[in-house]
Design a protein around this nucleic acid. Structure first.
Lengths: 126, 126
DNA sequence: TAACTGTATTAATTAAATTAATACAGTAGT
DNA sequence: ACTACTGTATTAATTTAATTAATACAGTTA
C-alpha cells in the first residue's frame, strides 16, 4: 500500500502522508476505513513507529483521518476535503497553462492532452 | 530579482536555482546575459557566497548557464532546455487532468481555465 | 490478565544545509 | 605590476531537521 523512496529528498513521514492522501482522495480508502496500526505499519516499512505516529498526527491535523484511542486511526468524512482538492486542482491547471503559454505551447495542445486522458478514463464531457 | 522564503522547507540554494530557471525559461534572462557575481548576490541576499556557488554549480550542471573564470556566469543557449520544459509541462498537464478526473471535475472545466489564461495573455488559438 | 490499539515525552543519532575562513586562478583597467 | 574584480575548490564548524530509541501511560477487546 505504501512504498518509500529513500532517494526522495522529502522526509519519510511526508511521503506517507501524501500517499494516504492520494488513496483517500481517489476513494481507494473510503470513509471510516481503518488504517494500519502505528506499530504494524512501522514494522512493514522497517522504520520507527514514531515516524508513523508523526505522519498520522499530520493527517489528523489536516482533517484526513480521526483517531480513537485503543481502537485505531480511521478515514474521516472527506467530502469537504475533496472539494478543497478540486479547487487546488483548478489552481494547478492555471499554473500549468501560465507556464505553457510562456513557453509558446498552444492552448489547443493542452486541451488535446485533456481529451486523451478523459477518453481513456471512459468519460466524455464534450 | 531573487526573493528568499525562509519558511519554505526547501534549501536556499534550491530556491535560487528554481528562480533563475523561471527567469530563463520565461526569457526574462536571455542567452549570454550575465548573472550577478557569486559574492555580490550573496551580499544582496545576506547569505554565504558558498550557497550561491552551489546554486550556480547546479545551474551549470543542468545546462542552464556557463561560467567563464575571471569573467562571470552567463545564461546558456537554452533552446533545447525550453523544448524539454515544454515536454515537462505536457506531462504536468496529464497529471493535472488525471487527478481532476479522479475527483469528478469535468474536462470542460479545465478547458475553461485554459481559455481564461490564454485570453488574458493576449493570445488566441481557437 | 494479555495483547492489542493510540499518545506523549525525552534523549541520542544521523544527515543535510549553511556558514566560515581560506586559498588559488583568470580578467580587466590603470 | 598592482588593484579589484571575477570563478572555483577545500576543509571545518555550526545549525537544523528528520529519524531512531526507549519508555511510559491510557483505552479496547477477548
Amino acid at each position: 500500500m505504501i512504498i518509500l523512496d529513500y532517494r526522495d529528498r522529502r522526509p519519510i513521514y511526508e511521503q506517507i502522508v501524501e500517499r494516504f492522501q492520494e488513496l483517500m482522495m481517489s476513494s481507494v480508502l473510503e470513509k471510516d476505513a481503518q488504517l494500519p496500526s502505528v506499530r504494524s505499519l512501522a514494522m512493514d516499512l522497517s522504520i520507527n513507529p514514531n515516524t508513523i505516529q508523526r505522519a498520522y498526527a499530520e493527517l489528523e491535523r489536516k482533517g484526513y483521518i480521526y483517531s480513537v484511542k485503543g481502537k485505531g486511526n480511521f478515514v474521516a468524512d472527506n467530502r469537504s476535503l475533496k472539494d478543497s482538492r478540486k479547487e487546488a486542482v483548478l489552481k494547478k491547471q492555471e499554473e500549468t497553462a501560465m507556464e505553457a503559454m510562456g513557453l509558446g505551447v498552444e492552448g489547443a495542445m493542452l486541451k488535446r492532452v485533456i481529451d486523451e486522458i478523459y477518453e481513456k478514463g471512459g468519460k466524455s464531457d464534450d
